[in-house]
Amino acid sequence: MAKGKRSGAEGTGTPGRQRLGNQILNSLPAPAMEALSPAVEYADTRRGESLFEPGDEVTHACFPLGPTVIAFVLPMRDGRMVEAATIGREGAVGGVVSLGLKPAFARAAVRIAGPVARVPIARLEDAKRATPRVHDIFSRYADCLTAQVLQSVGCAALHPLEARCARWLLMTHDRLQEPVLPLTQESLAEMFGVARTYMTRIARLLEERGAISRRRGAMCIEARSVLEEISCECYGRVRRHFERVLPGLYPRAEP
């Protein structure tokens, strides 16, 4: 991870924070963001990079900016992986719930590369104690993240891969806010824990229905409404919970 520390957004201080591209940071009260700004580090991530591994002490909370997407992944002894949750511009990874330094349970893996904002957990805890609204925002986000994890468990157990893939493409479209998604069939196969040939077949089915088109190193959303028809109810349930608990936090791409 390439790091570069500066305060504010593009060196402009609090007025520029609306350009950060992270919904939680943008929702913090101005005095709290001003207090955090000197401690914020900005860094670029690479696809496949691990921000922390199971057992690591988590020292910073990472806030994906703009198109960056990070996944909580559970590595298994046989080499396979299970994805538990996906976090984009609506959230944060590391130190969101617990107080102080705690060991990580899952791997935080970068799915779509881009910038992140890193905040020392100690400074974040100071902000929570100093400003009840900050504590409330992070507590509500933790509830939403837990809901996403629980829904993912049910989705993986009960729903066909085509519906799960459509759901993930919709979520990624929301976070990137553009129709071209830098996703390969190989990366999707790894994420869902299936053979690449199986993932290729699913992608072909989605393409035949007019939902997506494929190009080298990317998938393009051609008909979002078709993806919504194919997707299981899990996409809508998580979105609705976000809207009830933290209205306006979860982004939505234009059809």
Rank of each mutant, 00 (worst) to 15 (best):
A218G: 15
T86P: 00
N22C: 09
A113Q: 07
R252M: 07
V180P: 03
P64H: 02
L101I: 15
P54N: 04
A104W: 03
G154R: 15
P54K: 02
C220D: 13
E162C: 05
D126S: 04
R77W: 11
P115D: 15
G55L: 11
M1L: 06
N22F: 08
K5I: 14
P120M: 01
L124C: 01
S187Y: 09
F192E: 03
A113S: 11
S213D: 09
G21F: 04
R252L: 12
S7Y: 08
Q151S: 14
L20C: 08
M76T: 13
L36S: 12
P179Y: 11
M76V: 09
Q148H: 06
L74F: 09
E57W: 12
V194Q: 11
V153D: 04
S50F: 06
P67S: 04
Q18H: 10
P182I: 07
I121R: 10
V134W: 06
Q148E: 11
L65C: 13
Q148M: 10
F63R: 03
L99P: 01
A43C: 05
A84C: 12
R244F: 05
Q151H: 10
F105T: 09
R6N: 06
D126G: 01
W168M: 14
I121K: 03
R140H: 02
M191D: 05
L36I: 10
A35C: 06
R214G: 08
G91M: 10
L101Q: 10
L205I: 08
R111A: 07
V119A: 06
C155K: 13
I112Y: 01
R133E: 15
P29K: 12
V116Y: 05
V153M: 11
A71I: 10
A130V: 08
G4S: 09
L145D: 05
A9M: 14
T59A: 12
A104Y: 00
R46Y: 03
G248M: 07
I221D: 07
Q185D: 13
Y235R: 07
G79Q: 08
P67D: 04
E53W: 15
A106S: 13
P160W: 12
Q177V: 11
L227N: 01
P64W: 01
A166K: 11
T59V: 08
L170G: 04
A195W: 06
L145F: 11
R133M: 11
N22A: 12
F242R: 03
E10F: 14
L181Y: 05
N22P: 08
G11K: 02
E90H: 08
I112L: 09
P15Q: 05
A147F: 12
R164T: 01
R133P: 00
A106I: 08
R46W: 01
E83N: 14
T12A: 14
A130W: 10
V96I: 15
D174L: 12
L206F: 04
A166V: 12
H60N: 13
C220P: 00
R47D: 06
S27R: 08
A122S: 15
T197C: 08
T172I: 10
E57R: 15
D174I: 09
F52D: 00
L249T: 11
A195E: 14
R201L: 13
P29E: 09
V97I: 15
R204W: 04
V116K: 03
K3M: 09
A92G: 00
L51K: 07
M1C: 03
